[in-house]
Design a binder for these strands. Structure first.
Length: 625
RNA sequence: GCACCGGUAGCUCAACUGGAUAGAGCAUCGGAUUUCUAAUCCGACGGUUGUGGGUUCAAUUCCCGCCCGGUGCGCCA
């Protein structure tokens, strides 16, 4: 059937053409926020430039031309706007039917038809378990992949695990020195947590050595003081301040001078040289971590088409740079380092190969990006990575453009802000990092309590199953309803308070609607044939129809802006409209059988729309709360 | 110093990329329940959109200055 929005848009375009003799092309309609402004609005200000007439006059002529056309029962000019009111029955019918026919399709759009997109996300390190920030990353990546697929793109999702480098050597070293051959199995610990604890142990032991070194090396401070005794303006500084600064920077700058640091560096050298016992230990500890990651991903409902490992990918890119050097894209400095000048892109010069010829971080990223584009035949790539790395990605993209890849203009860094707690910032040094698994357990426990309070008949197994779903919905919705770029505060208590704009609110609304339908004794199909939109004339029913019509607009915007929050917002709108309706209007108890039937069908449509929208956010419905 | 991100109701967040009276949720206060599942609904209260200019018929949105917070600016990752 013809989409009613396209129909009205077409009528408006025709009206403009007929009245002013100019075709202004497809017209965008706005949904009226205020019921007093009708259902849809044509903004005459936007037409004013093309038609060179004052907006109020335009609006008046358009209103006259549109009134009575098709389903438009009233067209009223107010200032520079034309407010359209649609025939109630047509409005309701055209909003509900598509959802009943195919709810998933009602929210589908074709913004990215024919495109092939690659979404890279998660990217954990193997030295510790995932934390709250990874949850935001995982949910964003997974959801954006769903939203792009919903917009018609072929989407593949990949993960690049950082399994090499000094950080994993720290865990390995502490384990080697203090582990006594324990394994996750012997101590009954999840593998990634187990390895993470050895990382913490390293930091602790290392800090003891640092403290000792600082205590016994006053001479080291004195030499630092010599070179830092004056401030920027050349004024003498207070010694205590300099000492504080020295302590703060000491650890990083003297890593290799401290025994544990030196040992970790040596271990990295051995790993790179392929030393068999080092590699064996590395493999064993990584396998523990991967086991832990697997179980977390499974629990979160996150999956990947492929997982890459930096240990296999870190050498990529070097040859591309050398090729580019011959072509003159890169240049060799006097000291031997290879660099590229990005000043025409508003960036500086960027080194891409060290003077000793070895790779750096961006070299690897150039290599993996090219490899991924080829492997997946992707004409666009997205990275879900924290916003601290904006500059890195700006460099990466600018370099790839200069290298001339046809897809280089189609790369996007989906930068997201930090997630903080109400108590303040998460800091690994202060042990205030929230572990992802622990957090989920906490939310599940709270959900279980709620269920138990309301349902004393449920078995433990049943409660556990329901609590898991509700907790996941709560967590996912909380993290996705905020724009990615926003530095957000996650309040665990609020997320388990099941009222307001929450996942459980959606689940509850859905359960209410489906349960009513089930209790009515109607078969799944057949009801729709008796659906009579003309009977649904209550304001709360019209309101629902208007929200349903905005489904596609929400998914389009989500795909265009990589903003799951657009879908989340729409879900809250439809749930609110549904609950208001439920409160104000008898449905199962409606006296007239035909009316009862039509309302039940509406309830079904609402439930399916909520399920479809939630599915885009990776949120599964539950049978009962 | 330079660049980027942000500053909107007491709190957490929106505002369809320049459009109508800046909207939700939480919190607070007042109402609705012999229920169709009240994990709900209705109402009230709450704003000089950090600040000062500018552009525009129209600015939370664009431009410039300033203030505050955050993050970057490596031959680290």
């Amino acid at each position: 059937m013809t989409d009613i929005l396209e129909l009205i848009s077409g009528l408006t375009r025709q009206a403009v053409q007929k009245t002013f003799g100019t075709d202004v092309g497809p017209l965008a309609l706005e949904f009226a926020e205020n019921a007093a402004h009708g259902d849809l609005t044509v903004n005459a200000f936007h037409l004013a430039k093309a038609l060179r007439k004052p907006p109020p006059a335009l609006a008046a002529s358009l209103a006259a031309a549109l009134s009575g056309q098709g389903p438009i029962t009233k067209a009223e000019a107010v200032g520079g706007y034309v407010n359209l009111t649609l025939d109630r029955a047509t409005l309701v019918d055209s909003a509900v039917r598509p959802v009943l026919d195919d709810a998933a399709n009602a929210g589908r759009n074709n913004l990215l038809n024919g495109r092939s997109m690659l979404v890279e996300f998660s990217a954990p390190n193997t030295n510790k378990p995932q934390h709250l920030g990874h949850l935001r990353n995982n949910f964003l990546g997974d959801t954006v992949a769903r939203i792009l697929a919903n917009a018609g793109a072929k989407v593949n999702r990949v993960n690049l695990i950082n399994d090499r480098g000094i950080h994993i050597c720290k865990s390995m070293l502490a384990y080697q020195q203090f582990g006594n051959g324990e394994t996750p199995k012997t101590v009954g610990r999840k593998g990634d947590h187990f390895v993470g604890e050895w990382y913490v142990r390293f930091e602790k032991e290392f800090q003891l050595e640092v403290d000792a070194y600082i205590e016994s090396n006053e001479a080291a401070f004195q030499s630092y003081f010599e070179t830092h005794r004056l401030d920027r303006k050349g004024q003498p500084r207070v010694e205590a301040d300099v000492r504080k600064e020295w302590r703060a920077t000491f650890k990083e700058e003297n890593f290799g001078k401290i025994p544990m640091g030196a040992a970790a560096q040596e271990m990295l050298r051995q790993w790179e040289a392929g030393d068999s016992s080092t590699v064996a230990l590395w493999k064993e500890m990584n396998s523990w971590v991967f086991e832990g990651f697997d179980s977390t991903y499974r629990r979160l409902g996150i999956s990947f088409d492929k997982i890459y490992y930096e240990s296999e990918a870190y050498k990529l890119g070097r040859n591309l740079i050398l090729d580019g050097l011959e072509k003159g894209i890169f240049s060799r400095r006097a000291d031997g380092a290879v660099e590229i000048d990005l000043s025409d892109k508003g960036l500086g010069k960027k080194v891409v190969l060290r003077s000793d010829g070895t790779s750096i971080y961006i070299t690897q990223d150039i290599g993996t990006t090219v490899a991924k584009a080829e492997e997946w035949k992707a004409d666009g790539q997205i990275w879900v990575v924290a916003d601290e790395q904006r500059h890195h990605f700006a460099n990466l993209f600018a370099i790839l453009v200069k290298m001339g890849y046809p897809w280089a203009g189609n790369l996007h860094h989906l930068a997201y802000g930090m997630v903080n707690l109400p108590e303040g910032r998460m800091k690994s040094r202060e042990g205030t990092v929230v572990d992802a698994d622990d957090l989920l357990d906490e939310v599940v426990a709270l959900a279980s309590e709620e269920i138990r309070r309301r349902d004393d008949q449920a078995t433990d197994a049943d409660i556990a199953r329901r609590a898991e779903s509700i907790a996941l919905a709560a967590l996912r919705f909380m993290l996705l309803k905020v724009l990615p770029s926003t530095t957000m505060i996650y309040n665990p208590k609020e997320s388990i308070a099941f009222d307001g704009e929450t996942g459980p609110y959606l689940l509850y609304t859905h359960a209410r609607m489906t349960r009513m339908f089930a209790e009515s004794g109607q078969s799944e199909h057949g009801g729709a044939t008796k659906f009579d939109a003309g009977l649904l004339v209550e304001p709360s029913e019209i309101a629902i129809a208007r929200v349903l019509l905005q489904f596609r607009q929400a998914t389009e915007r989500a795909a265009r802006d990589y903003a799951p929050s657009a879908v989340a917002k729409w879900l809250v709108d439809i749930a609110q409209a549904a609950n208001t309706w439920y409160q104000e209007v008898p449905i199962l108890k409606a006296a007239d059988p035909a009316l009862r039937e039509s309302r039940l069908v509406l309830a079904k449509a609402i439930a399916e729309a909520i399920a479809a929208g939630s599915a885009l956010l990776g949120i599964q419905m539950v049978g009962r709360m």
